[in-house]
Amino acid sequence: MSFLNDLLGGGQGQGGGSLLDVAGSLIQKAGGVQGLIAMLQQHGLGDAVQSWVGTGANQPVSGGQLGQALQNGGLGNVLAEAAGKLGVDQGDLLGQLSQVLPHAVDHLTPNGQVPEQGAGGFDLGALTSLAGQLFGGKSA
Rank of each mutant, 00 (worst) to 15 (best):
G95M: 06
L7G: 09
G9R: 03
D123Y: 00
G16Y: 11
Q117P: 03
L36N: 04
G63W: 12
A30S: 15
A38T: 13
Q71I: 14
A80H: 09
N72F: 08
T55C: 12
S51D: 14
D21K: 08
L70Y: 01
Q14R: 14
L93R: 01
L127N: 04
L8K: 00
N111F: 11
G9N: 03
G11Y: 12
D106Y: 10
L7K: 03
D92I: 00
L36E: 01
L86R: 01
A57L: 11
G125Q: 08
G125I: 00
A80M: 08
Q68M: 12
Q50F: 13
L8H: 00
A69R: 07
A104R: 04
L4E: 09
L108D: 01
L45K: 02
L101T: 01
L36A: 03
N111Q: 12
A23D: 10
A48S: 15
D106V: 00
N77P: 09
L36H: 03
G95Q: 08
A82T: 09
Q65P: 06
A57V: 13
G11Q: 14
S18V: 10
A119M: 08
G15P: 00
K85M: 11
E81A: 15
G46D: 15
L130N: 08
N58T: 14
G91M: 06
D6F: 13
G35Y: 04
L75V: 05
V49N: 01
S62E: 12
Q90K: 11
Q113C: 00
T55A: 15
H43D: 07
A69Q: 09
L124H: 10
W52I: 07
S25M: 12
G16S: 13
L75N: 05
H43I: 04
Q50Y: 14
D47I: 13
L4M: 12
T128H: 00
L124G: 12
N77F: 09
F122D: 05
V53G: 07
D106A: 13
K29M: 09
V61S: 07
G10D: 12
G74H: 07
V33S: 02
N72E: 15
G91L: 03
S129A: 14
L97G: 05
G87R: 10
G9E: 07
A69P: 04
L40F: 08
L19P: 02
Q59D: 15
V61K: 03
A82L: 09
A38S: 14
G13N: 15
E81L: 11
K29P: 02
D47F: 12
V22N: 09
Q99W: 00
Q14N: 13
L8S: 03
G9L: 04
G54A: 15
Q42I: 12
L20K: 05
A82Y: 02
D106I: 00
Q113T: 10
A69G: 06
L36Q: 02
A69T: 08
N72I: 06
A57I: 11
L40D: 06
G32M: 05
L130E: 09
Q65M: 13
G35D: 05
L79M: 03
V22H: 08
A23T: 04
G24V: 06
L20Y: 08
G120D: 13
L127C: 05
A80C: 01
L19Y: 01
P115A: 04
Q90C: 00
G13I: 11
S51V: 02
